[in-house]
Computed example of a mutant assay.
Amino acid sequence: MQFLKYSLIRLVLFFAVFAALYWLLGFSPWLAAIIAAVIAFCVAYLFLNRMRTESVRQVQGRVEELRRNPGTHKGTVEREDEDAEDDFQ
């Protein structure tokens, strides 16, 4: 959940800066997007350090869990297909 919050905050920050540059200051869309990306990155790096660290831990934990238990991320349909293939052989 922390990863989702962190990503959402960064997206909102990017679009807020982009909107301000594009509509209020009249920058071209490409230049506004580049500047907004740099500003969003810098602000997130400086002020959202704890949230970023927690989101990295969350993603890292999920990846480690998937490595330990391969196949647990699959849906029921995929598991049924694999079981049917195993039964067929």
Rank of each mutant, 00 (worst) to 15 (best):
D87T: 10
S28N: 12
D87R: 15
H73P: 02
L11D: 04
A20E: 06
H73K: 06
H73M: 10
A32Q: 03
Q89H: 10
N49W: 07
F14P: 04
L31S: 05
V43D: 00
Y22A: 12
G75Y: 03
E82H: 04
L4G: 07
D83Q: 13
F27G: 00
V77Q: 10
E65N: 11
L11T: 08
Q2W: 02
A32Y: 01
F3P: 03
R62K: 10
A36C: 09
I34H: 06
Q89M: 09
A37G: 14
A20D: 05
A20P: 02
Y45E: 14
A19T: 12
V43P: 01
L21H: 05
R79W: 07
V12A: 13
C42T: 11
I35H: 03
F15Y: 08
D87E: 09
E85T: 03
Y45N: 07
I34E: 06
L8I: 13
Q89V: 15
A36D: 06
F47N: 07
D81W: 13
D87F: 08
L13S: 08
P29C: 01
L11C: 08
D81E: 12
R10V: 05
P29A: 02
F41H: 08
L8D: 09
V12W: 05
A84T: 08
E80P: 00
F47Y: 15
R57V: 00
M1C: 09
V43W: 04
Q58L: 10
M51F: 02
L21W: 01
R68V: 04
D86S: 14
V63E: 09
A36R: 03
V43A: 09
Q2Y: 11
A16V: 13
P29E: 00
L24T: 01
A16E: 06
G61W: 01
R68W: 01
F47M: 09
A40Y: 02
R62M: 14
R62Q: 12
G26S: 09
R62A: 15
R67F: 03
F18R: 06
Q60E: 15
A44I: 05
W30M: 11
R68L: 09
E80T: 13
L46R: 12
E64R: 15
F27M: 07
Q58N: 07
R57A: 12
A16H: 01
N49I: 08
E85Y: 13
L8Q: 10
E80D: 11
S28Q: 03
L21K: 05
L21C: 06
T76P: 05
M1E: 11
V63L: 15
E54Q: 13
L13G: 10
R68K: 15
G75C: 07
P29S: 03
A36W: 00
E78Y: 04
V59M: 13
F27S: 06
A19C: 10
